[in-house]
């Protein structure tokens, strides 16, 4: 008895394989992390003397473009997983590559947006609005970077597992997909809260 059971097949009474439970638990903790930061936003805004309208400071069209990019990347992520289920390796490669490309595009656009803010001397220290804007979007961008690293690993060296253990590799893509959808979901909350409201 040397190996851990239920790494590929679900356990019958919980209906989950190990890593799937693991990622859901991780996402629960992420909800608490971003939940605390969104609560911070609410408290600061309620306490604030005058809170600016996000659309007067931030660039709404750029934010909208980035929202579309992330939602598209979520769709390609799903296709990357379903094509593995259909044993279509070429389609998987294409969609995983697209997901990574869109994620990088998101970061590039975000980088230009930050640069424009710094150019006009808008720093986090300017006001509590700018502070929470940079903190929330910065932490979200770090999550995107983490996603790119993991997706890149499965696109590159990690893809070898498809030959040795295709079921486990499919599970891994499903799990990184769950994480990726969560990161998108955070942005879908971030965008209206910071840019529109």
């Amino acid at each position: 008895m040397d190996t851990i059971p239920y790494t590929v097949k679900p356990r019958s009474d919980t209906g989950l394989y190990n890593a799937k439970l693991g990622i859901w638990l991780f996402l629960a903790s992420e909800v608490m992390l971003f939940g605390a930061l969104f609560s911070t936003y609410i408290i600061l805004r309620v306490l604030g003397q005058d809170w600016p309208l996000g659309s007067t400071i931030l660039n709404v069209p750029i934010g909208t473009v980035n929202t579309v990019i992330l939602i598209t990347s979520s769709i390609t992520m799903v296709f990357a997983w379903t094509s593995l289920k259909k044993k279509n390796w070429g389609a998987h490669k294409l969609h995983l590559g697209l997901t990574i490309g869109l994620a990088i595009l998101f970061l590039i656009i975000k980088g230009f947006e930050y640069a424009a803010k710094f150019e006009h001397h808008h720093y986090p220290s300017e006001s509590t609005f700018m502070a929470i804007y940079f903190t929330l979007t910065g932490l979200h961008a770090l999550h995107i970077v983490g996603g790119i690293v993991v997706l890149g690993y499965f696109f590159g060296p990690g893809a070898k597992m498809w030959q040795s253990d295709p079921d486990r590799f499919t599970n891994r893509i499903e799990i990184v997909g769950l994480y990726w959808h969560f990161v998108d979901l955070v942005w879908i909350f971030l965008f209206p809260v910071l840019y529109l409201l």
Binding site: L25, E30, T40
Partner: peptide, 11 residues
């Protein structure tokens, strides 16, 4: 541990 620590991390 899972649910109470992240708010401290945020803080």
């Amino acid at each position: 541990l899972l649910l109470a620590f992240p708010p401290l991390e945020a803080a």
